[in-house]
Design a protein around this nucleic acid. Structure first.
Length: 624
RNA sequence: GCCACCUUAGCUCAGCUGGUUAGAGCGGCUGUUUUGUAAACAGUAGGUCGUCGGUUCGAAUCCGACAGGUGGCUCCA
């Protein structure tokens, strides 16, 4: 590493943003017909959206682009700032055949600074505020430009002083990206790069990325024998093995226990329903073309595989008259929904076509909303604390578009309630404008996968719309008929998505209560005496509902230990002459588990008892 | 659905610019070994190179379509 490189975020932002310009200059040099969209700094680097008409950039072109970028960096071109009157800028865009820039400038002329916030958030596919790019400083009627070498770009800056100060970078990938994030617009090519102040930091980052790949839930899912996929079954339809099913069941059991404690009752509903049900709920209009349809030969019913459960649950509510005394009425059901996601939108377990939700619905009076939501937030906190999974909180609110049902005033009220609950619960949060469901605002609890992608897990959602549409009623104290409010809630979210995040978070090292295999019993030899003794331990463990497995293969002890460690089994005991004589074992603890590594001998019964208690109380740290 | 890329044995991967019978490690199976806390030794069986079609004297290798997958974009109740 040379002289102390700038380390402040601002400088890093400027470096990355400058590299976006340098990349654009390089591309323009190589393909002069290139038309440019936007090119901001992002979390680990930068990108630029490019339209090359006939030519498509592929990763094979990266070496060429990188070489040109390095040439520009070596030339140490100055980044020169200037402000131009907006009309002159538009004329520039026209004459230099940059239609995308021209469109931006025209919007800027028309809408002023609102464009800056658009550029800052939605254009980058990031929540507002993350980019940290400072807004335009140009005078009203003027726009800001930066120039390096022959390359001129509409840009708010800031930039480093010259191209030589842009730091270490590497182009990583190219992807299609719709102009202004709109599917109806032309798709441009987005070239991504990562960038850091020094080569050393860049190398470190790339190394971390390699490490993250080792935690990929798809890789671990295979290695730990948790789930598989089959082209014959179909895309986005994972199959869970015995071990993976243990995880699903244990997680669901805990999810249901916590909700049972705050009054949720289990219900059951079928997996298909008439299309009409969803026409009433409002889902059909919005999502109907993404569902799996089932045609009845007997009746003329148009049926669909259920894509969500709320309408079913509402029909149970609607099945008899309800009084305010019945409220809040709390139903829960863990069940699988089916959505025909478009091919390119499937992603490991986190986006599948058969989605198991630990769903629940609460019907309550408007006065009860706060209390209901608060109880749910506590459940979320408890659950994720035990799991050790850190969450971010997003308040998903509506935007000004017309894709939401219901009265705007009701929305404002609902969003206010949600915000209050989160603030009262002392949670840090950010707002996701435009992230609401069409029927109401949500609190989205977000977890991160190994690559840092944020995925929604737990989510309480407010809904004033559907109870209205289904004509749900309750008799209030004064005998008048009122419409209940509905609160949707899932604690795991979808079990599949939750597992994708959780497998990556733990790297497959599950706490003992969740581990598909809790104890592995390894025999030193295959003599009758040893086998019988080991089998008797296996039986005892099973009597205590411990998931124990016996490895009586004809292999060395070293190898069997290794295999147990590879499968991330929390406890391993070795059975040989010594153990048979003493009736005691020295348990071997999985290498990541924080426990004193003294080789303490335990009576076998005591050891099994300790493990059973650990499983029952769901403690995350072993007490051995 | 869109853009780029990937698909060779159960798994991880070799196989140079098209040239005979496609290789390795792990795993599996068989035998020897009876093992003391992260890999005993030997032998052996597994592949119509994702599928279909095309170019060519000749295709794992080049082209196309489809399927599955990866990273993005769009969408996400």
């Amino acid at each position: 590493m040379g002289k102390a490189a700038p380390k402040q975020t601002d400088d890093l932002e400027a470096m990355r943003h400058s590299l976006a310009h340098i990349m654009a200059s390089a591309v323009q040099k190589l393909w002069p017909e290139a038309k440019f969209g936007v090119g901001p700094a992002i979390e680990d680097g930068f990108y630029y959206d490019i339209d090359l008409a006939d030519k498509t950039i592929s990763e094979d072109d990266f070496a060429k682009i990188e070489a040109e970028m390095i040439r520009i960096i070596k030339e140490d071109q100055k980044f020169e700032h200037s402000n131009q009157p907006i009309d002159a800028a538009i004329a520039w865009a026209k004459s230099s055949k940059q239609p995308y820039k021209e469109e931006l400038l025209n919007d800027l002329k028309r809408e002023g600074t609102t464009l800056a916030s658009e550029l800052n958030s939605s254009m980058m596919g990031l929540p507002a505020g993350i980019s940290g790019v400072t807004p335009a400083k140009a005078e009203v009627g003027e726009v800001s430009f930066y120039k390096n070498g022959d390359f001129i770009d509409l840009c708010r800056g800031p930039h480093v002083a010259s191209t030589g100060k842009a730091g270490a970078f590497k182009l990583t990938k190219v992807a299609g990206a719709y102009w202004r994030g709109n599917e109806k617009n032309r798709q441009m090519q987005r070239v991504y790069g990562v960038a850091f102040p020094s080569q050393k930091e860049l190398d470190k980052y790339l190394e971390q990325l390699e490490e993250a790949k080792k935690r990929d839930h798809r890789k671990l899912g295979r290695e730990l024998d948790l789930f598989v996929t089959s082209p014959l079954v179909g895309a986005g339809l994972p199959l869970f093995t015995p071990r993976g099913t243990v995880l699903r069941d244990e997680l669901n059991k805990y999810s249901q226990e916590l909700r049972e404690q705050i009054g949720y009752q289990k219900i059951w509903t079928p997996h298909i329903a008439k299309q009409e049900l969803y026409e009433v709920s409002g889902h059909w209009d919005k999502f109907g073309d993404e569902w799996l349809k089932v045609q009845s030969q007997e009746s003329h019913d148009n049926l669909v595989m259920k894509p969500m459960n709320c309408p079913h649950h509402q029909q149970i509510y609607a099945s008899r008259p309800r009084s305010y005394r019945d409220l809040p009425l709390k139903y829960m059901e863990t069940t699988t929904d089916y959505r025909d996601e478009k091919a390119g939108e499937l992603l490991g377990l986190s986006r599948v076509r058969a989605i198991t939700q630990d769903d629940s619905h609460t019907f309550c009076t408007p006065e009860q909303i706060e209390e209901v939501l608060k109880a749910l937030v506590i459940v979320v906190k408890d659950f994720y604390k035990v799991l050790g999974l850190p969450l971010k909180v997003r308040l998903s609110f509506r935007d000004e578009s017309d894709s939401y049902l219901g009265d705007k005033k009701l929305w404002d009220k609902a969003q206010g309630i949600i915000q209050k609950v989160v603030e009262d619960s002392e949670l840090e949060y950010y707002e996701g404008i435009g992230e609401a469901a069409f029927y109401g605002p949500k609190i989205d609890f977000m977890a991160q996968d190994a690559l840092g992608r944020e995925l929604q897990v737990a989510t309480p959602q407010l809904d004033f719309i559907q109870p209205e549409r289904f004509g749900l009623k309750y008799a209030d104290k004064d005998g008048s008929e009122k419409t209940p409010v509905m609160v949707h809630f899932a604690l795991l979210g979808s079990i599949e998505r939750f597992l994708s995040v959780y497998i990556e978070h733990t790297a497959g090292r599950f706490p003992v209560w969740l581990a598909p295999e809790q104890i592995r019993i390894i025999t030193v030899n295959q003599e009758d005496k040893t086998t019988k003794f080991a089998e008797s331990i296996l039986e005892k463990a099973k009597e205590l509902s411990i998931r124990a497995f016996l490895d009586n293969d004809n292999e060395s002890v070293g190898k069997k230990i290794r295999q147990a460690e590879t499968m991330k089994v929390p406890y391993t005991i070795v059975i040989g002459e010594k153990e048979i004589e003493s009736g005691e074992v020295i348990p071997r603890v999985r290498s990541d588990m924080e426990v004193q590594r003294e080789h303490v001998s335990h009576k076998i019964e005591d050891f099994l008892g300790t493990v059973r208690n650990e499983v029952r109380s769901r403690v995350t740290k072993t007490s051995l």
